[in-house]
């Protein structure tokens, strides 16, 4: 942690950590600066140029995300000149964007759309050639719509910096620049979907949730992943009693990162194979019964075995998948209700 220093942002004096960038200092002090390529969990990049700010003593605007704060610095986050520059940047990005927000999954949750709205961009001075890409996705997880890519490079950087994989790069130059794997074919991907979670537009999304519902239609419920022991926080996106997507927030133990199971492995929640009724074996076959019948059968049978052979003839196996509360109740039932310490779970398996 660096020393605290004093800077001035938009005329307001603020005291900030001296190790921050201008962007971080501004955000932490409550000032808004637009960005497309920034994420606090990635290294500063300076690619999108939207975070341009004016700093006293520096003749031209600089990118806030790559400029460290210094004591006494005077920053202006917005003025006519800067806003004109930002507006032009967004206009250029939109000039070869499909602009099909009506059918895009990201509508309502898209940084580019927000910026276009903010700057009131309907007409475009730069209409012209458009990038055209064929849809050639063979993987079952990630849907790519590269015509919507703004080349912010977040996907490339998260893959390399955070995931340690480096499956994709920005290849080619100028108008032909695009994100792709080496030689556009040797995809060495772990399908964690970190890239999907950072994409600011509709360029990268999940195949599973494509067309299932947009931001305004979902209810978001925070919970914890049911797979390994990392305890990643999941945000379940629910629409019409169905989990249609999983995401995660940065302010969690997992910093918003997930693995393929956590991010894409939720379909079992509505699997047609889910058990829907209690079953009792009758004449060798499991047959559907009512809860009353099943519970009566189990309790009477356990009761008679306890009576005849003693409580230690009964054992219970609890579950590392169930909650603390359920595990507590289970062992309490076996210990206090049945009267034996024969209770275990699969910690060893």
């Amino acid at each position: 942690m660096a020393d605290r220093i004093n800077i001035t942002i938009d005329g307001e004096k603020v005291n900030v950590d001296g190790g921050l960038t201008v962007l971080q200092a501004a955000r932490r002090s409550g000032f808004h600066i637009p960005t497309l390529c920034d994420d606090d969990r990635l290294k500063p990049y300076g690619g999108c140029r939207l975070c341009l700010v004016s700093i006293e003593g520096i003749p031209r605007p600089v990118t806030a995300c790559t400029t460290p704060v210094t004591d006494g610095m005077v920053v202006e986050t917005s003025n006519d000149h800067i806003e004109r520059l930002r507006r032009t940047i967004v206009e250029l990005l939109l000039s070869d964007h499909p602009n099909d927000c009506m059918t895009c999954d990201r509508a309502g949750d898209c940084t580019l759309q927000e910026l276009a709205y903010f700057y009131g961009l309907r007409d475009n001075r730069f209409w012209g050639e458009r990038r055209r890409y064929e849809d050639d996705d063979l993987n079952p997880f990630i849907k790519r719509d590269m015509e919507k890519c703004v080349l912010c490079g977040k996907c490339v950087r998260v893959c390399r910096e955070v995931q340690g994989v480096g499956a994709i790069e920005i290849s080619y130059r100028g108008f032909g620049a695009k994100v792709c794997p080496p030689y556009e074919r040797d995809l060495n991907c772990e399908f964690c979907g970190q890239c999907v979670s950072l994409c600011p537009t509709g360029a990268l999304s999940g195949k599973q949730w494509s067309g299932k519902g947009r931001e305004k239609d979902v209810k978001k419920i925070k919970t914890v992943c049911p797979y390994c022991g990392c305890g990643c926080n999941l945000t379940l996106h629910v629409s019409r009693n169905e989990v249609i997507r999983v995401s995660s927030e940065p302010d969690t133990i997992n910093e918003g990162w997930l693995c393929p199971k956590g991010r894409f492995g939720y379909e079992f929640i509505k699997s047609p194979d889910l058990l829907k009724s209690p079953l009792i074996r009758k004449n060798g076959k499991l047959e559907e019964v009512t809860w009353d019948e099943a519970l009566k059968f189990v309790s009477e049978k356990l009761g008679s075995i306890k009576e005849k052979y003693g409580p230690d003839a009964i054992g219970g196996l609890s579950s590392a998948r169930c909650t603390n509360e359920e595990n507590y109740l289970f062992q309490k039932f076996i210990r206090a209700g049945i009267g034996t310490n024969n209770v275990d779970h699969c910690a060893r398996l």
Partner: peptide, 13 residues
């Protein structure tokens, strides 16, 4: 496993 720590903590041993 997601709650193997919890199962052990809760006395399911």
């Amino acid at each position: 496993q997601n709650n193997v720590q919890g199962s052990t903590d809760m006395g399911c041993i």
